[in-house]
Structures are given as structure tokens and as C-alpha cells.
């Protein structure tokens, strides 16, 4: 198992009248190459859970084990290394650096990889952005920006991709395309993906779908990945 989460809990303003229990005793397993969807309304604790899984937020209690190593107890510097080497993030609002071109936004996530330019160009080509590589983010459409965001998340060849509402700022068709890209990444490159969303329309690409309410995972459903995913249609990451 790539990721094992046990009784993960996060309080904000603990032991005060304003205490908020954002995540409560969550148990979650994610296997290699598995796409997991966490659905739920706004304020249900999805993003808090994702940021803890991504090593950005320290849990109040519980454990997060990544390849057998506990993330919660890591030193800050070790967490930075963990995010740098093992994780890729896809954000709701893309979060591209506005002064950098598309390819430069991807290159930076490779840190000092020797073949950074070649790899970034290859990723963008596979995501259909070969003609937009030198465009600045403000010159790109929402869908193009999110594809650059996906390329950036893949640049360091991560084991796990954490996607936070990746389709929230996109229209339906573009959102569908973006999910197809993520699906193909998961299937063809055996990347594990956790997608947090409240968009019911995209849940079908997942292997497992969890529903979250008031900080708890209240329900789990099997996804329809096997039905909807046609590996032959994944043209983007052919090796």
C-alpha cells in the first residue's frame, strides 16, 4: 500500500470556544496506481485532509504512512523533501507563476534535473500544449493552464498526485478533458491520484469514491474506473 491513513484528525483552535474539528478519525488506503476520489460539500474537510496527506499540515492526531514511513512525525525539512520528490500537486486555481512561461512553470518543479527542459517539453507535448509552451499563463485558457498544472505535478515523477478541485474553475467539457488527462496519467504511469472535489460528474474515473461530511468519511463506493477507462483512448502518455 502506498498510503495508509489511520484515525487522522485535525482540530483548529483546539481547546478554545472556537474549536473546529475539520477532520475526524479518517481511515484511508491508497494503492499504487489507484485513483481515489474524495467527494463532499464545501467545508466538509476535504481540502484539510488533502493538505495533511500532502505533508503541508500537521495532524492533531492519527497517522499517515507513505510507503511505510510516517509523514506526521517528519521534521519540516524532511517534509519539504517528501513533497519535492514523492508528491505532485494540482490546484483548483492552477497557481502558475505568472511571470514564467508554460514550460518554465513546468521546469521549476523538476528543480535541478539535468534534462529538465527536455522532460518539461515532452510532458507539455503529450498534454497537447506543444504550441503553447512559451505562452505566459495569462495568455492561456483555463483548460490549458490546468494542463500546465498537471505537467508541473508530473515533472518530478511523483508517486502520488494530490488534486484539489481540479475542475472547479473549468467548464464541463474542459473539466472532462482534464480528468481524462489525470486518468491517463494514473493508468499509464501507475501514479496514485487523490482527487478532492464536489463535482459528481467526474467521480466515474476513480477506482474508489469516498464521501466526506463534517470531517468524517461517511461512505465509500466503488468507482466506475473499469467501465469508463479505455486504455486505448489514452493517447497522451504512450511510452
Amino acid at each position: 500500500m502506498l498510503l495508509e491513513v489511520r484515525k487522522l484528525t485535525k482540530f483548529f483552535d483546539a481547546h478554545t470556544p472556537a474549536e473546529v474539528r475539520a477532520v475526524r478519525e479518517v481511515d484511508l488506503d491508497v494503492a499504487e496506481g489507484e485513483i481515489v476520489m474524495i467527494m463532499g460539500p464545501s467545508g466538509s474537510g476535504k481540502t484539510t485532509l488533502l493538505t495533511m496527506l500532502g505533508g503541508l499540515l500537521t495532524p492533531s492526531s492519527g497517522t499517515i504512512s507513505f510507503e511505510g514511513k510516517e509523514i506526521g512525525g517528519m521534521k519540516p525539512s524532511a517534509r519539504v523533501r517528501f513533497r519535492r520528490h514523492a508528491l505532485g500537486f494540482v490546484f483548483q486555481s492552477f497557481n502558475l507563476l505568472e511571470n514564467l512561461s508554460a514550460i518554465e512553470n513546468v521546469i521549476i518543479a523538476g528543480f535541478s534535473k539535468k534534462d529538465g527542459y527536455v522532460r518539461a517539453r515532452g510532458l507539455l507535448q503529450r498534454l497537447g500544449l506543444e504550441k503553447r509552451m512559451f505562452a505566459k499563463p495569462k495568455e492561456l485558457s483555463g483548460g490549458e493552464r490546468q494542463r500546465v498544472g498537471i505537467a508541473r505535478a508530473l515533472m518530478n515523477d511523483p508517486l502520488l498526485i494530490c488534486a484539489d478541485e481540479p475542475t472547479a474553475n473549468l467548464d464541463r467539457a474542459t473539466g472532462h478533458d482534464v480528468m481524462q488527462f489525470l486518468c491517463s496519467v494514473g493508468c499509464e504511469q501507475q501514479k496514485s491520484i487523490i482527487v478532492v472535489s464536489h463535482d459528481e460528474r467526474i467521480k466515474d474515473i476513480a477506482h474508489k469514491v469516498f464521501y466526506m461530511e463534517d470531517g468524517k468519511l461517511v461512505r465509500q463506493e466503488p468507482g466506475k474506473h473499469g467501465e469508463v477507462c479505455n486504455m486505448k483512448s489514452h493517447q497522451f502518455f504512450k511510452r
Binding site: G54, V80, R83, R84, H85, L87, G88, F89, I108, N156
Partner: peptide, 8 residues
């Protein structure tokens, strides 16, 4: 963003 993706 840079911090999130692994910059120290």
C-alpha cells in the same frame, strides 16, 4: 505554491 511543491 513554491513551498507547496517542495521549495525550502
Amino acid at each position: 505554491v513554491l513551498k507547496a511543491i517542495g521549495f525550502s
